[in-house]
Design a protein around this nucleic acid. Structure first.
Lengths: 213, 213
DNA sequence: CACTGTGAATGCATTCACAGCG
DNA sequence: CGCTGTGAATGCATTCACAGTG
């Protein structure tokens, strides 16, 4: 399996290449790609080379072709993924509205909430279902990816139902560690923690230029 | 300066300790803390040891005391941070509503949007100001941290104005790399990329247990 | 030439293994 | 004992340096 850090960047490459293709750029060098993304040219070449040889010496990478290859490798070309959202609050609603998902074939096929007041309502064009019997609903909709945007207290329970329903990948926005079997891929987005990390650095220094001696 | 990966976890430790304190737990071992957070006990001890010696052999760590020490180290104890939000759309609105921020002393002091229709409205209890002359407003409000929740096209411009206004830390939710001077701390939350990364792994395998030979 | 692709070298992060303390 | 704190060992990730190609 490919290095994890490099997989994480694959998505960035694909997106930047989509932009370049949109601007009708035909070829791009690792240098330029790196500059756009705040990386080094070596890193770009190393990353790409773990998936194949895509470049031409002296020319660089053919934008459209590389884009197509990368999206295929990422598993987001010529197919869609069924996504379920648990929690139709502010965050959940923001996620439903986010256009970047649909563009890449991530389709919200199911939205649930535990709050009886929300059930039946339509949020961002999606009808909110009851979270009762979540396992079964998830299974019935053949959900691939579960997104957890519920309060901490409910997160683990929702997670368990997702897993029981056959979900094999989960994105968690609740600020708590979720226990999942090792057969399930988990990704965490921790908003509070992001800010606290920044506070650490702010509290310390007025960040100095690294004086190169 | 402390290892970056370890700083990122500091916030998790602090939060878990807050929970334990709330449950009136007096002492906790690295083992238990690790279990709660999905880490190894060695890692917990190593992380904590980079900031000092907080434990007692045979007993573990005193929950309340360690919590207080860590929040102090993080720079979130006994002070507040002024935060500005650019972009009062769905995501921005979700961030304003998120309670975890205020709890740790992150206060939204300023909300701006470029959309004239939104200016003047109140979103989640915050009056939306015009993004015109952002640099000056940011300076006037003594903003420490800027949050970018605007469309890609606007992100770099907003970022520049934050920086010009004296902001030294930025959280970016726009799916694009932002150029900032090396004096500014940057953190990126890339929702689309999280899903794509998952798709990569899903597309590949039904994740197997790592068979230890 | 301007560029890619990659061994070899470095640097970070995690884990092992254990001395030492209450 | 049950636990912490930490050198030494391992394992990833990034960077260097350069041979090789169109």
């Amino acid at each position: 399996m490919a290095p994890e850090a490099c997989v994480a960047r694959l998505s960035l490459y694909a997106r930047e290449l989509a932009r370049l293709a949109h601007q009708r750029v035909g070829y791009v060098s690792s240098r330029r790609l790196a500059q756009q993304l705040g990386l080094t040219d070596t890193q770009v070449r190393r990353d790409l080379s773990t998936f194949g040889q895509f470049g031409t010496s002296g020319r660089g990478y053919e934008v459209q072709r590389l884009h197509d290859r990368l999206t295929a490798i990422l598993g987001v070309s010529g197919r869609t993924w069924n996504v379920a959202l648990a929690g139709a609050g502010n965050l959940g609603s923001a996620l439903l509205a986010y256009r970047g998902f649909k563009e890449r074939g991530f389709l919200f096929r199911l939205v649930v909430d535990a709050d009886a007041n929300k059930v039946g309502r339509v949020v961002q064009g999606h009808a909110v279902a009851s979270a009762h019997d979540l396992t079964q609903i998830v299974r019935r909709h053949d959900i691939h990816i579960g997104v957890i945007a519920v309060p901490v207290e409910a997160a683990q329970a929702v997670c368990n139902q997702f897993v029981a329903g056959g979900v094999r990948a989960i994105v968690n926005f609740a600020p708590i560690h979720l226990d999942v079997p090792p057969t399930v891929w988990l990704r965490v987005v921790d908003l509070a923690s992001e800010l606290e990390t920044l506070a650490f650095y702010l509290a310390r220094t007025t960040k100095f230029e690294t004086a190169t001696p």
